[in-house]
């Protein structure tokens, strides 16, 4: 009887899912496939795509000129991720321990910036950091420098604003994990002689490791393809892979090469996602196995 009931309900489920699947297919899968296909095409001098197929674009990726850009992209994304986690860890800890009324208020504070357009927030930072901006004026007031240092147009500015834009994406999953964390474990660790910091490191961090993984993944994936931030506040030494893709597509009129770069990036991100989700599934499977064993 349950089987007879299941079939129509499963069909209904499919029908209900169809619009979103269709949306995903049209606006995500299809463009991604086009990008992958274009990567195997040849470019003509007029900015068009010629009929033939080639592996040259993929071979071009091995060109040593991409190495410093790739290295910089990974370095900036990795450092951004690390800084975001280092800040988000104590923040999420404090939020989870705060009184419920405060907790919602803090959560609101973290979400409010999303009400403002991303680009506007980046430009706001630019206004703050530019040579006659507020931060420079404050630095001038301290008289520590003969002339206030240039705060914009370097990798430091890119890093700062990347951290600023990505921090909520690190805090939210960590907070979700911290909220589920059993804080008596911290008491237990203190009771067994651990200092507050040792308890945080040896008990809290392992206890929210999945949230930590999710936060790291979200921030890293979001920053590795970043184009806008290095374009606006970056200088001559802050070019990332996203900027190179834009240059190939617009300035160089070489869509296939841009596609090859984009496809390589997409491939890296997908690989990372698959690795993480399989690690996640493995740990979940282990949990289930443990539960099963206990029941048996």
């Amino acid at each position: 009887m349950s089987a007879a009931k299941n079939i129509p309900s499963r069909r209904a489920e499919w029908l209900l899912t169809l619009p979103s699947l269709g949306w995903l297919a049209v606006f995500f899968v299809a463009p991604a496939l086009i990008v992958f296909l274009l990567a195997f095409k040849t470019a003509d001098a007029t900015g068009g795509v010629s009929a033939g197929w080639t592996l040259d674009n993929l071979r071009a990726l091995a060109d040593p000129q991409y190495r410093p850009i790739l290295w910089r992209t990974f370095w900036i994304s990795g450092t951004t991720t690390l800084i975001c986690l280092v800040i988000a860890l104590p923040v999420s800890f404090a939020m989870a321990r705060a009184a419920p009324r405060w907790r919602n208020f803090l959560l609101l504070l973290i979400i409010i910036p999303f009400w403002t357009n991303f680009l506007i927030r980046v430009f706001a930072w630019k206004t703050l950091l530019q040579s006659d901006g507020l931060v420079s004026q404050l630095l001038d007031a301290t008289r520590l420098f003969d002339e206030s240092p240039t705060l914009l147009y370097n990798s430091g500015a890119v890093l700062l604003i990347m951290v600023y834009t990505q921090l909520p994406f690190a805090i939210l999953p960590l907070y979700a994990a911290a909220e589920r964390f059993d804080f008596t474990l911290m008491d237990a660790a203190r009771d067994l002689g651990a200092s507050g910091f040792r308890a945080f490191r040896s008990v809290f961090i392992p206890g929210i490791s999945r949230g930590l993984g999710a936060a790291a993944l979200i921030v890293f994936v979001a920053t590795i393809g970043m184009y806008v931030v290095p374009d606006i506040v970056g200088g001559t030494d802050s070019e990332m892979i996203g900027n190179k893709i834009a240059q190939r597509a617009q300035g160089d009129r070489n869509l296939p090469l841009a596609s090859a770069l984009a496809a390589a990036l997409l491939f890296c991100v997908l690989l990372l996602l698959i690795l993480c989700s399989s690690a996640f599934r493995r740990s979940e499977k282990l949990d289930n196995a443990l539960k099963g064993e206990l029941q048996a």
Partner: peptide, 28 residues
């Protein structure tokens, strides 16, 4: 708490879920 020569057995045990039995005991 960490400096008191006193230890606690908690109501819901508060065992560290990521550590084995031996590692839990060895924690202190």
């Amino acid at each position: 708490p960490e400096t008191r020569p006193v230890n606690t057995v908690f109501q819901n045990y508060a065992l560290f879920p990521h550590l084995s039995v031996a590692d839990n005991i060895a924690f202190g």
